[in-house]
Write a protein that binds this DNA or RNA. Sequence first.
DNA 1: GGTTGAGAACTTGTCAGATATGTGCGATGG
DNA 2: CCATCGCACATATCTGACAAGTTCTCAACC
Lengths: 243, 243
Amino acid sequence: MDNEREPLSESRTAGVVRHLEELIFDGDLQPGQFLPSEGELATAMGVSRLTVREGVRTLEARGLLEVRRGRRPAVAYPNAAPLSGFFAASLRRDPRNLLELVEVRLALEVHGTTLAARHATRTALTSLDLAFNTMSQANDEESFNQADVRFHAALAAASGNQMISFLIEAMDEPMRESRLRSLRGHLARGRSMDDIMDEHARILAAVRDRDARGAAEAMREHLIQTRMDLRTFLALPTSDAEG
Amino acid sequence: MDNEREPLSESRTAGVVRHLEELIFDGDLQPGQFLPSEGELATAMGVSRLTVREGVRTLEARGLLEVRRGRRPAVAYPNAAPLSGFFAASLRRDPRNLLELVEVRLALEVHGTTLAARHATRTALTSLDLAFNTMSQANDEESFNQADVRFHAALAAASGNQMISFLIEAMDEPMRESRLRSLRGHLARGRSMDDIMDEHARILAAVRDRDARGAAEAMREHLIQTRMDLRTFLALPTSDAEG
DNA sequence: GGTTGAGAACTTGTCAGATATGTGCGATGG
DNA sequence: CCATCGCACATATCTGACAAGTTCTCAACC
């Protein structure tokens, strides 16, 4: 019972999508540069403007094009929007996916921290310092969380691996709410803000010392604590297994 | 000089997208179920069918809808297509991103293996066995690689974390070509297929023994070898740093 | 009664043409 | 030289129409 059936010939919209992809990838178009207008593309490809529009929409949703009224479509700078959309949709579909996302984040951040300890440039370390200081001076939950996000983003950036950066960044927005919950759980467990600052301080020190293993371990411990905080808030068993 | 300008009121298409998202997420529509037809949606939302179509296309690109000619749009089952598209686009934009992807994969697979050792069900172990045996009996490059992919996919699935599974799966297709390169590099380094099988055997054994730490370590070593293989093929320095 | 098959009804895919509105550039005037 | 005002161009959206694929209905047939 193979119910799958390939269309005999790809739809015109699919053809437009492929054509546009070729323009973007193989057409020597740099991010920020403009494509021909919808009308021009339509006549060039022998389809109606409507069909071009649908293709353009598809590539916009994939984060490859930037469309604004009155301007021609522009090649987008690489960005994490598609990832962000994916994670956000996963969470909206089933909030239980939050715990899965936390695991992904743990894996990526621990490895990212390893890389950061090895490759962080001076400027990367500077922005890491900045975020850390902002955190320590924050006097309300909101600004603290904001600085916390910036710290982790700066650390991901320090890894020199943009893919990791994008993934971390993409999870920030969908997990914004969970950060608050985690903080509540943290306090509910009788722990203080100083603990959190200590954890971050250890990470920062190890990265600065180029101690890859120590930095990874510090990050791992921090994220395991965070995971327990979240589980506490969600009233789930707080297994303290290490990984 | 803030050149950003928010549109005074969101475009109608954006409104349609939000409306459709609400239908999908909050509308008690299960994957596989159908939305109202484009025409019905159009009259219900007071826009033209064209506008509805653009919204539908957007959500299709995000992996939330499945559209086929003659049928109404259906809610899609959660899938990794958007992730796959993202990774593929990243690689097409700049093949150097391959090494970054390898790092992401290392982070996720190592952690996924840890989870697999802890949580793998009996059936998950069975399919892992199956993939392993298929690998060992493969007699050409193509079928070997195919079984290799299945082994890693089964391992990711055994972690019980669908998010990790999706991410691994999403990287498979874009990295298909690199797998061949890695194999070439492997042989170029004077190593044999038996080495690869040994590495996999160690992983499998540790997972079976519920030895989370050992499984993670075996996977890490395997992926570091693979990374070196790839670097050899690409004629890059093969740093053997651990992480 | 159950099965099959031909349409009918519905739905998406695509086209054409038209209007509204935002962008950018160049002419114009101070 | 510089600000401003149009005008050409581009996207956003609508209407109406037809082609082509899918599903449902119902009658004819075994």
